[in-house]
Design a protein around this nucleic acid. Structure first.
Lengths: 235, 235
DNA sequence: TAGTGGTCTAGACCACGGG
DNA sequence: CCGTGGTCTAGACCACTAG
């Protein structure tokens, strides 16, 4: 565990413990430096991490403040590459199919840059409180994800990749649009043909810069809403 | 202009000038330090900025590489708080109405934390290549945005606020969902009642942590698609 | 004008990737 | 093993906020 992550965790805990709310002030940087016995740069890194996650913001000449989202109940983060966490409760997963392909269909193939295009095609329906909210169609290169079983697919693929395979997801590209559902997809999502849906096309990159996963997510418009907290801080 | 911004600009220019493509390698950090005559920390800050903008990525023990989005033609960034830039061309704006209110409607009012709730309500229809792609309904607190004219609203509100009013937009919360359009909104977007739309509810914060703008954007599903590039780098 | 965050330096040492 | 990025330190000085 890196020092700045530890410091970030401690600050997060302190916010929770002291029940600090949006706009409440944190100790000044110098105090954090003394309290945690680290250098200013390390505290700044920790604060950068927290700022990126939407937990705090800094005002030059004034202080560090808690930035708490008004109310995220039921909203899910579109943007962190960490799967679904926290705000969406009672998630269950129905594995529809796991196929092994010599190469993915064109819509996914065009993004991969490896020669060896053998891949898994995984289709899942994910539910929250028994209501379907997203239909997933994912293509994983076997080169990076050599094995997927139904049991694995039942859980978090992110967790499996990072912990089970010890591969790191470093960044992602997302393409999003809205369209009308066709009957087949609509049925799976318990909607009707012509109903609206948000489509998210995700490209996930390994630590080496190669795409290992191309996914297409179709969200049920009635059971999914999203949030994002952005900040212009770098450090 | 800060040093790390200058360094970031120079690196960006070098990528362009040398026609570097996705996966191409940049000089190592030590060389960038020497070339620009700054410290390692400054180069790291510049690279953090570029990483955040999706321009580069680093691989420990290997190097710094160009991260170029495959093809962003026609896609717009949902996430930068900088208005619409670059990828969407030929933008025109039709100002529908500018009203002065003693307080905003409840859906916007609930987010503001100031006592003085006098505000402008600005409605605009934005088009790309003469096709409507988003209907905007924005509430600006007069305390922070004391004046809006039709001429101003015709241009970029972001530019007006940052350059004209010299106020800084520091961060934002976004809430997003998909719904079916009602007839009135559909007409403005040249769609039909019941057609799908992406709704984005934006909260924009000033440098002092106060919300000054609450906006509701309704996107035409046929004329708008979005992208986001994320990375887990902090610095 | 005091207090607080922002930028920058110079350099030490760690950790990972790839030949 | 070497080259490269990652983390961390200690401290100087700048820039902004607010009373």
């Amino acid at each position: 565990m890196k020092k700045y992550q530890l410091v970030a965790d401690k600050i997060r805990q302190a916010i929770k413990k002291n029940n600090l709310k949006r706009g409440d002030k944190l100790p000044k940087i110098k105090d954090l430096v003394d309290e945690f016995g680290v250098s200013k740069a390390t505290v700044l890194q920790a604060l950068a991490l927290l700022a990126k996650q939407g937990t705090v913001y800094k005002i030059q000449g004034s202080g560090i403040f808690v930035r708490e989202p008004a109310d995220l109940e039921g909203y899910m983060s579109l943007l962190t590459n960490r799967g679904l966490t926290g705000v969406v409760d009672n998630i269950s997963t129905e594995v529809i199919s796991i196929d092994e392909l010599d190469e993915p269909p064109e819509k996914a193939k065009k993004y991969f840059e490896d020669e060896d295009l053998r891949c898994y095609c995984l289709k899942r329906l994910r539910k929250t409180n028994d209501k379907p909210f997203v239909l997933e169609e994912s293509y994983y290169l076997k080169k990076y994800v050599p094995f997927i079983s139904k049991e694995i697919a039942q859980g978090s693929m992110f967790k499996y990749i990072s912990e089970g395979l010890n591969e790191e997801i470093r960044f992602s590209d997302k393409f999003m649009w809205v369209e009308k559902l066709n009957e087949c997809v609509a049925n799976k999502l318990e909607l009707k043909a012509g109903d609206p849906a948000l489509i998210v096309n995700d490209l996930y990159y390994m630590g080496n810069g190669k795409i290992f996963d191309v996914s297409f997510l179709t969200y049920n418009y009635q059971n999914s809403k999203f949030f994002d907290q952005s900040s212009d801080e770098i450090i």
